[in-house]
């Protein structure tokens, strides 16, 4: 399979305060994301993970290096709309990305901008709302919905553009546990059933555990990259860069010190309990 997003020696710095040297937010990132994969990008606040996300659909343009979206260079202005259609973005604050007063109008916003024919927009809106399980709210006013529901509307708005990839830029950070679960279940399903690539920017470890691949960022660089089972067990290293290992991993670490013969990568509750049972027997 091909890469939907590829960065090469990507660097970026925000304009500095007066009289100060620019601090690089991204410092040489080489990353390839395969079409159809589910990638979590982890890092503490200020690690560069959101800056990286904003390069994935040309909201920010590289200061140095290159970014390709489905083979298209994000520096090529003529390709801007096509790049943004292929990689949709869902942001942190649900209230600040909903444009319209009615759910269906909001979902239609992307296709309308793309000049899709009316009948086709109607079909896409219906399909997108169904895909996120919000079809019952088609004619509702968005400000009466819960946080999780608003984020699902935002996801539907992206889906209606028929993208190849969705980037969730800390889209769960402002939600309560129930809202987070709603959003995660939705993107997991979209990834599995429709083959849409998901890039999940987060600092919640349990969310990262759902992904196929975890990329950890620190000070503008990729410092770890691999399947969750390999990354999330590196408790000490994670803690050093301001992240936490899941409690299950912490427990298994502790039990090892007590002489238990347990693996470290039993991340799930069931799995963890089974590993302990085996060690006790």
């Amino acid at each position: 399979m091909s890469d939907i997003i590829r960065t090469e020696h990507l660097t970026f710095a925000y304009p500095p305060d007066e009289g100060k040297d620019p601090v690089p937010a991204l410092d040489g990132v080489d990353l390839s994301i395969r079409q159809g994969s589910f990638v979590a990008i982890l890092g503490h606040n200020g690690s560069g993970k959101s800056t990286l996300a904003k390069h994935m659909n040309a909201v920010l343009l590289p200061g140095g290096g290159r970014v390709w979206v489905d083979g298209m260079d994000t520096l090529d202005e003529a390709l801007l709309l096509e790049i943004r259609r292929r990689v949709g973005m869902v942001f942190q604050n649900p209230d600040n990305q909903i444009v319209a007063n009615v759910v269906e109008e909001d979902v239609a916003f992307g296709p309308e901008n793309l000049g899709v024919a009316t009948a086709e927009i109607q079909a896409r809106v219906a399909a997108a709302l169904k895909a996120v399980g919000m079809e019952a709210f088609t004619l509702h006013a968005p400000h009466h919905l819960s946080g999780g529901q608003k984020q699902r509307i935002a996801i539907a708005g992206v889906i209606a553009m028929e993208p190849a990839c969705i980037v969730l830029d800390e889209s769960t950070a402002m939600l309560d546990p129930a809202g987070r679960r709603e959003v995660l279940d939705t993107v997991k399903t979209l990834n599995r059933d429709k083959g849409i690539t998901v890039v999940l920017i987060t600092h919640h470890m349990d969310e990262a555990a759902m992904a196929d691949r975890v990329v950890v960022m620190d000070r503008g660089r990729v410092v770890m990259d691999g399947p969750p089972r390999e990354i999330l067990v590196r408790m000490e290293e994670l803690r050093e860069i301001g992240l936490d290992a899941p409690h299950t991993v912490e427990l298994l670490h502790g039990l090892r010190q007590e002489g238990f013969d347990v693996p470290l990568d039993a991340l799930g509750i069931q799995e963890c309990a089974e590993a302990i049972l085996r060690a006790l027997a």
């Binding site: 973005m89 269906e104 009316t118 708005g157």
Partner: peptide
């Protein structure tokens, strides 16, 4: 909010009224 909304709208391919269709 205005700032974030502007970015969100651009991400959804908003580029003025030109060539826009309607639901």
């Amino acid at each position: 909010r205005a700032d974030e909304l502007a970015v969100a709208m651009e991400c959804r391919c908003y580029h003025g009224g030109e060539g826009r269709t309607k639901l």
